Amino acid sequence: MSKLTKFSSKDIISDLPRSIHDLILTKLPIRDAVRTSVLSSKWRYQWKTMTELVYDDKSLCLRDDKNVAEKEFVDFIMRFLMLHDGPILKFKLSASYLKESTEIYQWLLVISMKDIKELVLNVPGHKWKWDYPGLSIPRIIFTFQKLNRLMLSAFTVKPPVEFQGYPCLKYLELHGVTITLKVIENLISGCPLLEMFKFCNMDKLALTIRAPNLKHLIVEGNFEDLYLKDTPLVVAMSICFYPLAWRGDILRKVPVTYDYLKSIEIGNMDYEDLDKVVYVLHLLLQSPNLQELQISGRDEAPDPPHYRTADFDIWERQCPADFTFKHLRTAKLSHIITKHDMEFVKFVLGRSPLLEVISISLDAEYGEALEPVNEVLRFRRASPGVEMRFVQGSSRCY
């Protein structure tokens, strides 16, 4: 019994390697990480050397008065940073309470001397909305030359004239930011190592992307066009159309073949919108090694339609007679409703000789779905062994 008692009283957690302690601290809300100081002498100051700092609304003390809660939150972050000792590799701030950028500037000033590698700033504030300018991003952020990941949400982004870009940045995400076309294009081209770019924006931009090392592209919004001028290494592309815009035909003007592009995902596709159909068609034609295709149809048709309507046979008529999806293995087509939608299903089945699985989601009740299912089963299949899966419901725009 004495041996059992001795074993039970041993502080196993405190004797774990320092790297495990650091991992444990990163999994806790930051206030709880600080509270581990009371566990034992070995834990007392370990929070001071945490390399990943995450401040969000969970870090707030519960207060009925939001102004008091905000002040305590701001004071807590500043005290923590001033007592911190060592590098800070990741700093994430996601708090709806903050309405001023003064405090953020002070925090960024501290971490500017900490070899920051990853920065996430999401401070929408209680008045934020798509057409409401966000807080101005502190200019000191443009001096963080060692960043390899940057995510900004709900800020107004305006770099100083002397800003040349981020030489080490590989991941860039901008969500709901207020930014000009020139700034975003210069920002992208100023990141020579950029591998992933995610952009969600409501402004009608004709965006040109020059990123020779880009591999993953995710865009969502009301763009007028997306001009992929220098992106030869793109492996995966995800585009979510919004109901308006996308009026351009820039892809037809670009003699580019995306040899590395393996996966294409399109959200909120309208098979009756001529401009969107032509955009997607030429993207498919320029992707000879495509292996995965996922397209989700529109949520609802505009009333009245604001676009030029595509003909039913446009996919076959505009496509070269000898074109096939030579490497397409899987296809997922969601939210199939109209005859225009069904024509695209027919096009994919008839042009994919190596297709292994196609999943088709029909927006219809069980009894009503029987007829379109039978219609699809009658379509010619270039791949005789293709597995056809029919699903009720649909995948919406992400």
Rank of each mutant, 00 (worst) to 15 (best):
D65G: 05
R378E: 11
Y45Q: 05
I314A: 05
R18T: 15
G221A: 02
V376R: 01
T102K: 15
K204Y: 09
M82G: 01
G165M: 10
G248P: 03
G176Q: 12
M82C: 13
D311C: 12
H327W: 06
E265Y: 11
L135N: 05
Y55C: 11
K262R: 15
F144H: 05
P87Q: 04
N374A: 15
E316F: 15
V120M: 03
F163Y: 06
K127G: 00
S101H: 09
Q46A: 02
L355E: 05
P384Q: 09
L214C: 13
D65Q: 08
L207Q: 03
G297K: 05
P384M: 08
I314Y: 03
T143A: 12
I77N: 08
E292S: 13
K42R: 14
L53S: 07
E173K: 15
Y55A: 06
S41C: 04
L194V: 08
T330L: 07
L193K: 14
I111M: 04
D363A: 09
A310D: 06
L349M: 11
K66Y: 12
D15R: 12
D259K: 14
V391D: 13
I24C: 07
H21K: 11
F142L: 04
M151C: 13
K129P: 00
I30Y: 08
T324H: 11
N222S: 13
G367C: 00
L233T: 06
K346F: 04
T36Q: 05
E371A: 15
V54F: 12
F76Q: 07
L333D: 02
R79P: 00
G350F: 00
K10N: 05
L169A: 06
V277H: 04
G385K: 15
G267Q: 02
V348C: 03
T180K: 11
W43L: 07
P372N: 09
E300D: 08
G367T: 01
V34S: 01
D75K: 06
K158T: 09
Y258C: 04
K332Q: 09
V110T: 13
R44Q: 14
D56K: 12
L214N: 14
Q106F: 06
N268G: 03
I209A: 07
